[in-house]
Design a protein around this nucleic acid. Structure first.
Lengths: 223, 223
DNA sequence: CCATCACCTTGACCTGAATCAAGTCTGGTA
DNA sequence: TACCAGACTTGATTCAGGTCAAGGTGATGG
């Protein structure tokens, strides 16, 4: 979790070699899991490329995707002694792995890093509160609308009230598990949005928001 | 948010007067709101007594309670420039208010404080992931069971498999808004648990868990 | 001791989303 | 170009939980 600002931004002109010496790069193939929920949390990760999904599971296999992470995002902040979530690459990802011990050396050497990490955690905390409202109180329609709008803010939004090209790199299953719905419901609602000329479905992964403003309204329950 | 470890624990034997000089105490009466969602975030709070509920609202009044906080918990970490949530006293609360500027002076003076804050944010992050799973994937029965079990862990659990006395200081409305249900559903499920001899309802606020183990199972969807 | 009010419980009914069950589309392969 | 497998869509039906509507309960005050 975390966004847009690399871990390096708090180290700036300091010796990047030190940072490199405390971390190791890794590549994770599509669909491969690299954090096991409940496993001892030994590492902290930064996503450097591709995408990743975070999730928790119930014993019977029900899954809640708690977030998607991409380049620049932090993972493993929510660390006590064991991970509170699992993580899996979404179409291949590259990561920087920082063992906790190394992390500690880094924060000692670059105290401002600690602040950055807190900032990052706080930002994520705010996002999660919005997501709890989505899961606890929004209708299926509102959830899907919120998801589409959320995806927009990932790319630097040009101007609202204009069509926006989106790609949804995750399968419907992941969207459903993120929104607390079933794939059928997600599919039906996207179709409904299309019928209402709110979106255009160019391909499974490519969607155009034709009326971003209206979708925002729907997302907030003000349609 | 945050739990059990006062902010002071990272300052230890240092001059508490400095801490006091950067903060002010405040008392909030039952039901009074002291953080307005979306308002500029100028302060950081520590709950020193009583209880507090945190929530977000949708424009039409739907409410999601994102957490309850009590003595020792931190509030306002999720701070960008504006609060991501509202906060309201639950039966009267006392707080310590730290203006952000003062907070910064404190973290400069006591660098370990920064680490404590991150730790706190991370802990909260982990809790929120569990809550997202609750809201996105659990049934009403599982949610209420989870809520009861969660309340247990607030008091230092003596031994499982033995009856546990609980008090639920919040009205049903708050429980419902916390679990993403209606008051009727919460009420019905508590009644059902009573009928199944899983709990005993001594009064509206006093509940005895007769079979904590079984309730835990239900909470995880393994009944 | 009763009235009142706020909160909670219970019941009857309804509905949004899940489930179950076919189709359909897409991209890869031969 | 045709075939196949996996992912998506669509339709019919069901059901968990919401909504609407009475009661019940218990603390406060007259």
């Amino acid at each position: 979790m975390g966004r847009r600002l690399s871990i390096c931004s708090s180290i700036d002109d300091c010796d990047l070699a030190i940072l490199a010496s405390e971390s190791s790069r890794m590549t994770v193939a599509d669909g491969r899991s690299f954090i096991e929920e409940g496993a001892p949390a030994n590492d902290f990760f930064v996503v450097t490329g591709g995408r990743v999904k975070l999730f928790t599971l119930l014993p019977d296999g029900r899954r809640q995707i708690t977030g998607f992470a991409e380049g620049g995002d932090f993972l493993g902040l929510a660390a006590s002694t064991s991970y509170a979530f699992g993580a899996e690459a979404l179409g291949g990802a590259t990561l920087c792995r920082f063992p906790h011990a190394g992390m500690q050396r880094l924060t000692e050497r670059f105290p401002s890093l600690e602040h950055r990490l807190r900032e990052e955690a706080s930002r994520e905390l705010a996002l999660m509160q919005a997501r709890m409202t989505l899961l606890g109180r929004k209708t299926a329609r509102e959830r899907v609308a919120t998801f589409l709008i959320e995806r927009c803010s990932h790319l630097d939004r040009p101007d609202p009230a204009h069509p926006i090209e989106l790609d949804l790199p995750m399968p419907r299953t992941d969207i459903a598990d993120y929104l607390g719905l079933t794939i059928e419901t997600v599919s039906r609602i996207l179709s409904a949005f299309k019928k209402e000329k709110l979106i255009n479905i160019r391909s499974i992964t490519h969607i155009t928001l034709l009326a971003p403003e209206r979708i925002s309204m729907i997302a907030e329950g003000m349609e």
